[in-house]
Amino acid sequence: MVSSAPAPSAPGGGDPAPAPAPPPAPVPARVPVRDATAPAPVAIPGSPPARLTVASLDLRMPVVPVGVADDGTMDIPPRATDAGWYRFGPAPGAPGNTVIAAHVDSWVTGIGPFSRLRDVRTGASVVVESKDGATHRYRVVSVRKIPKDEAPVDQWFAREGDPRLVLVTCGGAWQPEIRHYADNVVVVAEPTGA
């Protein structure tokens, strides 16, 4: 469909090229140029979280990477004793929110440690150990129970802004007809820098 005939537009033709008057602009900024034949640049993710500890709740859990469930919600490890890190979002220490969620209760393990999340105190210490051995320390700044239809999900999953840790589970009334809890329990923690 591109059978271009040999261009008759001979260079130097008689047409007075209507050159648009170039504005007296400053020198163009330098144009970034890269070799497109090299492998595409790959974003270097931080090291995934491997362990979550909230000592004041006697909560110590392994953390595994998770993605998205078939229904578009965050995937959650089937065992309530495992916490899931949203692997498409920021790792600990990177800008934005590191989101870690776990079932409050599950078919295979019953009630899990995140059932105690609602009891955490503001100021409580949270520690995340990364796969690479680094230790990230946080302090709880808020604990909230939010109806799911009002949950600011996009804020939890923000990939920009100050690094924060967002822990999510369920709470409120069980709704047997849809087999979900009514609320999310959400703990936000900020790095202590120590």
Partner: peptide, 20 residues
Amino acid sequence: HGNPSGVQAGQVGLVSDSGT
């Protein structure tokens, strides 16, 4: 990127506030 639509993090109802 689009974000997950929510977090459904309970399966059984064992810790329901209403005692259901």
